[in-house]
């Protein structure tokens, strides 16, 4: 099983940065998510989580640092959270951190993800640079 490293880009579409490490179980999705084929982009990510939770079965820490994602991406994010919830239910160790800018709307969105998936998500304010 291999790490995933995708470099984020803001071009005609916005590709988020993705860094998943097998050795540590640390996974980060950052930047902006607006993709030509959203499900196609996220499929390798789903497959990585599936493989990790079925074969490695180590702890997982997910850091979401998304400054923008469209509604189509939000469906895939819920899919990821669903998979993490399922892993946690089966005894896996899962920590999810959601970094947000100073916006109540973003906080509401994270709260809705929590309600939608039943997963605990830590809400962490991003430091202003």
């Amino acid at each position: 099983m291999e790490d995933i490293h995708i470099k984020g880009m803001h071009e005609a579409y916005f590709i988020p940065s993705v860094d998943f490490e097998v050795a540590t179980g640390r996974c980060e999705i950052a930047g902006e998510s607006y993709l030509e084929e959203t499900t196609k982009f996220y499929t390798p990510i789903f497959e990585w989580i599936k493989e990790y939770t079925e074969t490695i079965k180590g702890p997982l820490t997910f850091d979401f640092k998304l400054s923008y994602f469209n509604t189509s991406s939000s469906k895939c994010l819920v899919d990821i959270l669903d998979m993490l919830k399922k892993y946690q239910k089966s005894g896996g160790q899962v920590t999810v951190n959601w970094y947000y800018e100073d916006s109540e709307e973003e906080l509401e969105e994270v709260e809705d993800f929590i309600m939608e998936t039943g997963l605990d998500i830590n809400k962490i304010p991003l430091e202003e640079e």
């Binding site: 469209n70 509604t71 189509s72 939000s74 469906k75 819920v78 899919d79 939608e116």
Partner: peptide, 16 residues
């Protein structure tokens, strides 16, 4: 979002 994810609603413009 649930409905769209479960494939009951193809039109994601609704969530938009």
């Amino acid at each position: 979002r649930r409905l769209a994810k479960d494939g009951h609603n193809k039109n994601s413009g609704n969530i938009g």
